[in-house]
Design a protein around this nucleic acid. Structure first.
Length: 303
DNA sequence: GAGCAGGTTTCCT
DNA sequence: AGGAAACCTGCT
């Protein structure tokens, strides 16, 4: 069945099952959710069209869009318990994204309306905060495949074993022990120094991971941007993809271009565009951003 | 081989 | 304030 080297040889995978609560997503939406720049540890299973395999925290699982577009998962049998307990949180399954999307101002915004229609089922993940911060510290001036490669090296060299050949991303207390030069050896370049410095700062800041998701957005954003290597864009990505702060409106080059061309914001600076985004799209601005982002990337591919 | 990439910091005017 | 250069690495 599987063509992955380690799968199905010794350990068996559980049967496919629905999440609790269930999550609806088409194969296309699932692909965009898992590989569209929110997360960096998911791969298509070789030989399949729509099966994804990935890792978060100490969990490892497969995901697919099953019949009637409801999401199904499978995990290595020994991991099934923790995956079952954690998957709903990871997928933010408790959130009704259809209702949230409907609350966006698409009735008065034709551009948004078109993008929402183009990506039915798109949703935001709620990833473990610490590894979201780590992944996005790797992300500056890098494209998705390279970010994924950096995450993989960090996991393989410094992470705890999760399953055959799979390791978790290292947690921040572990990262604090690693000399900068060892991080550089992963190919991180100047990002190695930032990760090292952030690890030292976080070691002295207890409870940050619990506080950040509950803090008011401006406060959370300010706290993150005070970390070395974390500017406004990375702070917004961390808050949006790892803390459920939907007001966060990450402005990267794709969004900058989308907003310039589709909303007439030519020549605007990223900070101005971010402020416009939050004012125009409201408290769920980050969700709107995700639809605009996916649309712009797709348009970019076709060019 | 020069140029550039989903960004941030630093150093200028 | 606002703009340009530097920072690493890997790919075109």
């Amino acid at each position: 069945m599987s063509v992955l080297p380690h799968a199905a040889v010794t350990d068996s995978w559980t049967a496919w099952q629905s999440g609790v609560p269930p999550v609806r997503a088409s194969a296309a939406a699932l692909a965009e959710i898992l590989s569209g720049g929110q997360a960096f540890r998911w791969r298509r299973v070789a030989g399949t069209e729509h099966v994804w395999q990935g890792t978060w925290a100490d969990c490892h699982a497969r995901l697919r869009a099953g019949a009637d577009e409801s999401l199904e998962w499978s995990a290595p049998a020994p991991l099934a318990g923790r995956v079952a307990a954690s998957l709903g949180d990871y997928l933010a399954a408790d959130m009704d994204f259809v209702a949230l999307t409907d609350a966006l101002p698409w009735r008065t915004d034709a551009v948004l309306r078109e993008r929402l229609a183009a990506w039915p089922g798109l949703r935001l993940l709620r990833q473990p905060l610490g590894e979201t911060l780590l992944a996005f510290l790797c992300s500056s001036a890098k494209q998705i495949p390279h970010i994924a490669q950096l995450c993989e090296r960090l996991a393989q060299r410094f992470g705890e074993p999760v399953w055959e050949g799979v390791r978790a991303l290292p947690e921040w207390p572990r990262l604090a022990e690693i000399p900068e030069k060892d991080l550089r050896a992963c190919g991180l370049g100047y990002r190695a120094r930032f990760i090292h410095q952030v690890a030292q700062k976080l070691a002295a800041a207890s409870g940050w991971a619990e506080r950040l998701p509950r803090a008011p957005y401006p406060e959370a954003h300010a706290w993150l941007t005070a970390l070395p290597g974390v500017g406004p864009k990375i702070a917004d990505c961390v808050l949006l993809f790892g803390a459920g702060q939907f007001e966060a409106f990450p402005v990267d080059t794709w969004i900058l271009r989308a907003m310039a061309e589709r909303y007439g914001l030519r020549g605007w600076r990223p900070a101005q565009v971010a402020q416009f985004g939050r004012a125009h799209f409201g408290p769920l601005a980050g969700l709107a951003q995700q639809f605009l982002f996916s649309g712009e990337r797709q348009a970019g591919k076709k060019r």
